[in-house]
Design a protein around this nucleic acid. Structure first.
Lengths: 197, 197
DNA sequence: CACAAAACTTGACACCGTGTAAAGTTGACA
DNA sequence: TGTCAACTTTACACGGTGTCAAGTTTTGTG
């Protein structure tokens, strides 16, 4: 029982997640989380010195519980570049709604808090690597459009798959999750794949 | 000289703009703006009761000074749907960097402040109408893809043209403004225009 | 010119949320 | 039985927004 009490720690993470899931945004205060976890506000600070630490830890916790690695494995196993592109969009696109609450809170902090900024940046970098791998697979198949460099193609796919875009389609435009996935897959192909294919 | 002093008001708006332009984000406090304008903090509150009011007024002020209407007129004058699409992307896409500072501050407030939310929503609605007009023009020419409904096509173009996406391309991916415009135009065509065209 | 209203200043304060500090309580286990 | 770690309780500093009230300067008008 080295690092405090692991049970309490997990209860805090679960509470944070639950609150952010039902009410995405920054309206979730440290005291709310403490109340939800059934402990004092100070106990939260005992485990997570800063709010940013807590949010970062919550995303890591979620990644572990929801096993994001296993999900992305499918896209890595794809044979063709097109399959890999589809599989990646499907895996990541369906993961976004599960982390959206926490992601939004982290996103809101990233302009004020250095640590939150780095944490978010790191996670997005991981997504970017997935995009890059898909682009490389497309290129290997000779399917990549010649209108874009590999870096540009990666940037473009990465931006298409941003949490903000998902948010806009789902919340602002009232698209269904399934439609979001389908249209994103189709758009990615049209934009990234060479014409005569 | 009814509504306070119009000169002071404009000096506040100019100061807000200047500060947000050089340092986009929310680190700009009411006291910073007062100092920049050379007046007391309370005087700012005399003109703008809430921070959100000030930000909203600053965007309106910018729209007026930069004459966004005139710029969009070009796209409205376009003959074909394709021309209209290009012209709209060009006009709006080149306007974003000019309002980015203020937009970012407003964007950061919109999850906490009802008024900021509505103001941002209203402005984005105006952009959406521009997208809708372009889609309608495409459709009139029989150039709109049949893979998307007109609403979906509008949603898609609108999302492609979001301030967040511009931010990602320019800041995160280090694209030039010119490249951003070119790639966005090309992507929009690929995604929205019917294949055999 | 005088004086009243408007514009602005000054200084104080309430409120909220984050984060810190310190002393007290509880329970495990050795 | 005593000690240590986890947690509680209470209190407070800090920074930023927004409010309040009393005082001063500027401006327009009879």
């Amino acid at each position: 029982m080295s690092r405090k009490n692991i049970e309490t720690r997990n209860r805090i993470l679960e509470s944070t997640w639950r609150l952010l899931e039902t009410d995405p945004g920054n309206d979730v205060r440290m005291s709310d989380i403490a109340k939800e976890a059934g402990i004092s506000r100070q106990a939260v600070y005992l485990h997570f010195p800063k709010r940013a630490d807590l949010l970062v830890a919550t995303t890591r916790y979620l990644d572990e519980v929801r096993d994001i690695d296993a999900r992305l494995a499918a896209s890595r196993a794809a044979k063709t570049g097109l399959e890999r592109l589809d599989a990646f969009i499907q895996a990541w696109g369906n993961y976004i709604p599960e982390i959206y609450g926490v992601a939004k809170a982290l996103l809101a902090m990233k302009d004020q808090d250095e640590e939150a900024y780095n944490a978010w940046q790191g996670r997005m970098q991981a997504v970017r690597e997935g995009c890059e791998a898909a682009i490389n697979a497309l290129d290997r198949d000779g399917m990549l459009t010649n209108a874009l460099s590999k870096k540009e193609a990666t940037d473009l796919l990465w931006t298409m798959l941003s949490v903000r875009n998902w948010e806009q389609f789902r919340s602002e435009c009232n698209w269904t999750q399934a439609r979001y996935i389908d249209v994103t897959k189709a758009s990615a192909r049209k934009v990234l794949v060479a014409d005569g294919a």
